[in-house]
Simulated assay, not measured.
Amino acid sequence: MEFKEEQKFTQWWLWLILIPIGILPIIGIYKQIIIGEPFGDKPMSNIGLVVFAIFIFSLLGLFILMKLKTTIDTDKIEMIFFPFVKKTTKWTEIKKAEVVNYGFVGGWGIRLWTKYGTVYNIKGNKGLAIELLNGKKYLIGTQKEAEMNEIVKKASGQQRL
């Protein structure tokens, strides 16, 4: 018995926003540094423009690299929100686990202080809500609601949650 899921930011509208943001520093560098004309009414220094470009490209690279990987088996639930968080929770540490529709929690990524505790999601509004024996809570987003629900029922039944 095992569940595996890997999610990435693949929303077309997100990339429709991010790609033009990535093109902006290229245009600025070309116009200001290569051609020699100031870029905009109040241009940055050349060094400032290069630092801005590095920041923007790093941000785009982060969106390309980010992924949410979930693995569930009879012993544990493992969640990796690369490159930020890795969590492994044994079933014996869990008070309650259920697949829920968590609605909108203010966006995607890592959301703190929600009614589900910390929410780790890439897209959608379905996820595995976990409450630990120590009272802490977190939620892992999923695009495979039915499959996750089935595996959680099997695993939690074996653990008698």
Rank of each mutant, 00 (worst) to 15 (best):
E2C: 00
E2F: 06
K4Q: 13
E5I: 01
E6L: 08
K8I: 03
Q11S: 10
Q11Y: 04
W13D: 10
W13V: 00
I17S: 08
P20V: 01
P20E: 04
P20K: 02
P20C: 03
L24W: 14
I26T: 12
I27C: 11
I27A: 13
G28A: 10
I29V: 15
I33E: 08
I34F: 05
I35W: 03
P38K: 04
I47C: 01
G48N: 09
V50F: 06
V50Y: 09
S58C: 11
L60I: 15
I64D: 10
I64K: 05
L65H: 09
L65F: 13
L65Y: 10
T70N: 09
I72A: 13
D73L: 00
D73T: 12
T74A: 14
I77W: 03
F84V: 05
V85T: 15
V85L: 07
K87T: 14
T88S: 12
T89L: 06
T92N: 14
E93H: 02
K95A: 14
K95L: 08
A97G: 01
E98D: 13
V99F: 02
V100A: 02
V100I: 06
N101F: 02
N101H: 11
F104A: 11
V105T: 15
G107E: 09
W108H: 12
W108R: 07
I110Y: 07
R111G: 07
T114F: 02
T114E: 08
Y116S: 01
G117M: 01
N121D: 10
K123M: 04
K123E: 12
G124W: 04
N125K: 15
N125G: 07
L128E: 07
A129R: 02
A129P: 01
E131G: 00
G135F: 02
K136A: 05
Y138V: 08
T142R: 09
T142L: 05
Q143R: 11
E145C: 01
E147W: 02
E150A: 13
E150Q: 12
A155V: 14
A155C: 15
Q158R: 15
R160N: 15
L161N: 12
